[in-house]
Design a protein around this nucleic acid. Structure first.
Lengths: 214, 214
DNA sequence: CCAGGCATTGAACATCTGTTTAGTCTACTA
DNA sequence: TAGTAGACTAAACAGATGTTCAATGCCTGG
């Protein structure tokens, strides 16, 4: 849509280039000269417009955050499911933003914090609704379950290359996601264990040492 | 046990310092001067003994890998369960090594690749055994399920700070692990959904777009 | 047309960091 | 005792990188 780089202001070109580089290589490994090069400007202009590499990062954070929460709001409160669906159906642009935010989560950026909070809150809301209407099983700790589902979703989208290779793919992508979809849904529908042995053992173990000892 | 740094050779002190720094800050953000400082030697000596920062990394990789697989072998082939148990019961030392290896997985190091392959293979073996003796439900894709369980386990141990904070903790640690244990076991025992709607929908969706059938 | 401000650049600067080098000290050996 | 090899250090080197600066071009308001 708005990918004609000539139409964009230099600030926007720099920001987009930075988002791409930060998403692909991470913040530390990205240097401003490379960002300036893909933006088609001089290194000095980056500083002139954004002040410093760190401020550039925070601008990118806010920009991606705003786009993602806006999309999430448009798509309705179905939690992480949307992330997957959009990831599968959408072109490069959205993948880039998701990848950027996942990087930001790893590097513990403020914007990533609010993004995660949003995801967890939505997920918890979905879980409580599902439990209320009987489509989901009650849980002993809905909050923890929400964190768990978000964690597993984020982990899937950030799947490290070694694990992707264990499935026969060079790196994570739509193919891997499709391959994992069925086992994941099977797990979420029927569970894995056929009896309560492991669960009861865990309950007993947690009762033994209810607090932390270190 | 062997933490009296005076007893160690300079090579070992440098290696241990490097492992600690790589585990805490990652490879890129770690500089040799910091490693040399915590090892109590000069920067030049690091190069003198290891040749380069990259070779130092590979030595650390192999060292940690050897320790971890040795522990895994001692504990028997119960897959990731051991990682958690040892993580919970053991002092700093083991946590450091696990953290180091998780960093290596993110950065896609050769040693991390073999470590992941070991985990996935063990996990798949455990799953097939469980399915055979009836303690686990059959899966449409055992290999993918093995990757999924390893992925979720690794994700839990590498839980990013924003998600840990969503549970009220400053960062990941034994407390968070204990908090997640019960919901995880509940999920693995009973599943989450009360009917097959989502599962059947996914099956239908995957039949619609059978991208590749390798 | 002019003046001033803004975008932009190329070069320079300062720092960080991996690495090299020359030299010192120590320990062992003949 | 003398010599040699290796551990070790301090200093310097070289490249990368974030940032600054002076200068140039461009556009706009007066």
């Amino acid at each position: 849509m708005c990918s004609a780089s000539s139409d964009l202001t230099a600030q926007a070109k720099i920001r987009n280039a930075a988002i791409a580089h930060f998403a692909r290589d991470g913040f530390a490994k990205t240097n401003l000269r490379a960002v300036a090069a893909t933006a088609g400007v001089s290194p000095g202009l980056v500083i002139h417009h954004f002040g410093s590499k760190e401020k550039l990062r925070s601008v990118c954070d806010d920009h991606v955050l705003r786009i993602l929460v806006q999309r999430a709001d448009n798509a309705g409160p179905s939690g992480m499911q949307d992330l997957f669906r959009e990831y599968l159906s959408n072109p490069e642009e959205y993948r880039l933003q998701v990848q950027y935010m996942l990087r930001a989560i790893e590097e513990d950026t403020p914007a990533a914090g609010t993004f995660v909070d949003t995801l967890v809150a939505e997920s918890e809301q979905v879980l409580r609704a599902g439990i209320a209407d009987g489509s989901m099983r009650p849980s002993s700790d809905v909050r923890a379950l929400a964190v768990l589902t978000v964690l597993n979703s984020v982990a899937t989208l950030t799947m490290p290359p070694p694990l992707a290779r264990a499935l026969g793919h060079e790196q994570f992508g739509p193919d891997v996601l499709r391959r994992l979809a069925l086992p994941t849904l099977e797990l979420y529908t029927h569970g894995l264990f056929t009896d309560d042995a492991a669960l009861n053992a865990a309950r007993a173990a947690l009762d033994d040492s209810p607090q932390e000892e270190d």
